[in-house]
């Protein structure tokens, strides 16, 4: 690693360290009530305590299970509808308008009606998350299936490829970049919505609930820690997907 890069990395650390210092000075001199801004050392201590107590892992596990279920249902449905609409213009004309109309409703707007129909159940939350993952996945898959250039279709005709082989060898690979970014977007959407679900459906369990409870009891240190963990997991999910994308799309790079 050359010197320039080290300098850039160090600069990136400057601002967080300065903020930490300011935070520490403010709390040291008690310019702001510790209720609203607990000292850094308290947050660190609480963090250690939470990790040792282990309840946080139960909540974490609950959120991740929920998000995994909703996400998988959502992207599967999105993949099926997106591919079907991408391959058949009749299906597109049939489902497209309704899909686009429903999509205009902000996702959080569905919460009240989901609660009415399914009650405050796990099922309601999973459907909610699945719906959030469904939209971007459908759109990206649909777009991807339209990516194949006419020139390549001619190659398929020259080699007398049948429909399934055309799909497998030509259409899906050319749609892959778009599908993978659909999966990534759906994943971060689902991760946000699981927190949302736990907050808005006001039920027990999960990181969102832990956060909400901390808010109600004005335990600022726990709010900070949950934000940190939620952000960290979101980052890891995104990063893993990006690595996967790079691996699967090696053919795109020229070197």
């Amino acid at each position: 690693m050359d010197v320039n890069k080290v300098v850039l990395k160090l600069r990136g650390l400057a601002l967080p360290l300065a903020l930490l210092a300011v935070w520490w000075i403010i709390t040291k001199n008690e310019w702001v009530s510790a209720v609203f801004l607990p000292p850094p050392e308290t947050v660190a201590a609480t963090c250690v305590k939470l990790l040792l107590k282990g309840k946080i892992f139960v909540d974490l596990n609950e959120s991740i299970t929920k998000v995994a279920q909703g996400f998988l249902i959502g992207i599967t449905a999105g993949f099926v509808l997106g591919t079907a609409m991408g391959l058949s213009s009749t299906i597109e004309k049939l489902f497209g308008p309704l899909f686009n109309a429903v999509r205009q409703v902000p996702i959080l707007g569905w919460i009240p009606i989901l609660i009415l129909i399914f009650g405050l159940t796990e099922l309601a939350k999973i459907i909610f998350i699945a719906l959030g993952a469904f939209y971007p996945m459908t759109l990206n898959t649909f777009d991807g299936c339209r990516q194949l250039k006419k020139e390549y279709l001619e190659v398929a005709r020259v080699f007398e490829f049948n429909k399934p082989r055309l799909l497998w060898r030509f259409i899906l690979p050319s749609a892959l970049p778009s599908i993978l970014s659909g999966i990534r977007v759906s994943m971060s959407e689902a991760w946000m919505l699981v927190i949302g679900a736990e907050i808005f459906f006001k039920t027990r369990g999960g990181l969102g609930d832990m956060m909400w409870e901390a808010k109600s009891k004005v335990q600022m240190d726990i709010v900070f820690i949950t934000i940190l963990i939620i952000g960290l997991i979101g980052f890891i999910l995104n990063h893993v997907m990006k690595i996967l994308e790079n691996r699967l799309l090696r053919w795109r790079s020229s070197n």
Binding site: E151, V155, V158, F159, R169, P173, L176, W251
Partner: peptide
């Protein structure tokens, strides 16, 4: 079209997601 005729296009039209080997074996 038929396999009794081979075609080379001006833009090579190799499938970018397949290796050279698999492209040739298409």
């Amino acid at each position: 079209p038929g396999l009794d005729r081979g075609v080379v296009f001006q833009d090579h039209r190799l499938l970018p997601w397949l290796t050279v080997e698999r492209n040739v074996g298409l």
